[in-house]
Design a protein around this nucleic acid. Structure first.
Lengths: 180, 180, 180, 180
DNA sequence: AATGAATGAGGATTCATTCAT
DNA sequence: GATGAATGAATCCTCATTCAT
């Protein structure tokens, strides 16, 4: 009834749900199999080691996309960046990304890539708006890094503190600081 | 030879080191005992359940301090906040705090308290500088939350991305945004 | 592309190599298939149970040949026996024979047959040289068994100890002992 | 009730019996525990890895003893060697030694040591009887190696073929061959 | 005949926790 | 208090074997 890759997908679905919920270490492979509705052995058929489930999840279900923003109003450019995060990933995948950063190199690498791309784009958006590179490089760098941090951790902040940050207002704030 | 509390301290020292390094789940109590140089049984003598080691660590080795800033220049007030984080905790304890936020309620509560206090103080510092509460409440809130986020996650950012953020420059940025 | 029996042969080739190397128990059927370059299912197509691979190997790739020696000089007759072992089997098959003697009856039976034939021929060669069955039967029996043991285990001895035994010298020794 | 090392001994007893019977690979640790009458976990308390059971068995329950034979009649000296094997080991340990030679280096090393000592002593016994080193060195070497092989493999031969070899007769044979 | 996904029993190993001394 | 042997549930993983296609 199932297509061959159907079971594999269901395993990844289950793992995504469970890793996001209880964490990698706290999730037995048997639990993954049960939630996926497949026999225990099939998990190891597709993923020889448990860690391969996590690695495959990150490999296949998060994607850091590189794209340059349009020139224009810096506050709007940052807002757009916030809305179109250069990360194709479900909310659960984003939680997994941060929680399991120390579980396997590939996870940390993906976060690193994401943060770099966020900073790169924020910096680029701000530079486009600056006439002729005027202004303080350190302040621009800090502004880009700050905005990246807000975007990167907004999910985590919300999860840990219940506090949400409005990225649009932060974008406006940063634009104001740099461009008056 | 050792005083009783000496062994207890050494156990907590070892746990702090190991939890920060490999995480709570990945650290066997036997390893804690070995690193602490005490017999395995003694760990359970002082901490009946493994989770008690983590809880005690957070209870005894992180402290969210409440204190109001002096009125004055907002940028300097924020910088001071950055330098005197309302958290008495070693770098490893800070890493444990974030990594194990989902391991036990008490950890998440501590982070929550820390974030609240950070926001409260940042807000207070900015309000003191604002003549009579003038200005946009939403922007002030976002500014406080942003600064708190930068402080809260700077360690994590550095660990995950190798990128450091200069809190002083961010303080200056935020002050500029709000006060021109 | 391959003829059916081609695949079957390659499976046996692979099994021979792997059983000789790591032993029967330590060799997964999947490994046999991989080394043979055939899909896993095909192994079970030809050999319904894993043990059938071993049994077929012994059945088809070892052969205890029965043949009577020429009458003549006993030392030369024994030397000839050493050189023309009544066992048609590659070195790997010989190692498998001894290592897996307890894995399946058919293996032990084959060794038993080989040993019996070795003793029978050694005895026969010595009897031919003895005028009219003179001499001590027990000594003749021990001589035959000793020579058989040397031949049977020379491979094993070399493998385990690095020590080689020159069968010709042993043949001469035994002839000297019996015939002066 | 049990002395601390009592359980450990019972585990080794059980392992000795089971390894001799069915072989190392075919013996689950759970079976060892059951036969020893101890809980599964205790096996791993004393022997972190299954292979450590085998290694400990060989280390502690086989001993290759070095001792020089008395000068005298060579046939009797060899017979004495046969009766006082330079190996302190139960029959089961001897079977384990040969069967598991390829399972772990330490086993093969022990056999190697045993074989060397057997050859050394047989050679020594024969040299003592030879007036002034007269005679062919190659024949003496082959004689010693042959006798060592008979002693080394008599147990294995009996097990595999049901045929027993009388070491005394072989000793006599060899003495006759060398000394007439 | 050929294939590889599917299955699940079994097995090594880990580890928190207990407890007698 | 202090200790390390004892316990067994839980977990990852292996692998022979089946079976639909």
């Amino acid at each position: 009834m199932d297509s061959p890759s159907d079971a594999r997908s269901r395993i990844l679905d289950a793992a995504e749900e469970l890793f996001a919920g209880g964490g990698y270490d706290a999730t037995p492979t048997a639990r993954i199999a049960a939630v996926a509705g497949v026999p225990k052995g099939l998990v190891f058929h597709y993923f020889p080691r448990k860690i391969d489930v996590l690695v495959s999840l990150v490999d296949e279900r998060t994607l850091v996309t590189e794209e340059d923003p349009e020139p224009g109003d810096p506050a709007r450019a940052l807002s757009t960046l916030a809305r179109r995060l250069p990360l194709t990933a479900s909310p659960s995948m984003r939680r997994i990304l941060f929680r399991e950063a120390d579980t396997h190199r590939s996870v940390k690498d993906r976060i690193h890539g994401l943060n770099s791309e966020l900073i790169r784009r924020a910096r680029f958006a701000l530079e486009l708006a600056l006439p002729g590179g005027r202004g303080d490089a350190a302040r621009l760098e800090a502004a880009a890094a700050t905005f990246a941090a807000v975007l990167l951790y907004q999910e985590s902040i919300a999860h840990l503190t219940g506090h949400t940050i409005d990225a649009d207002v932060v974008a406006d704030l940063i634009a104001t600081a740099l461009f008056g």
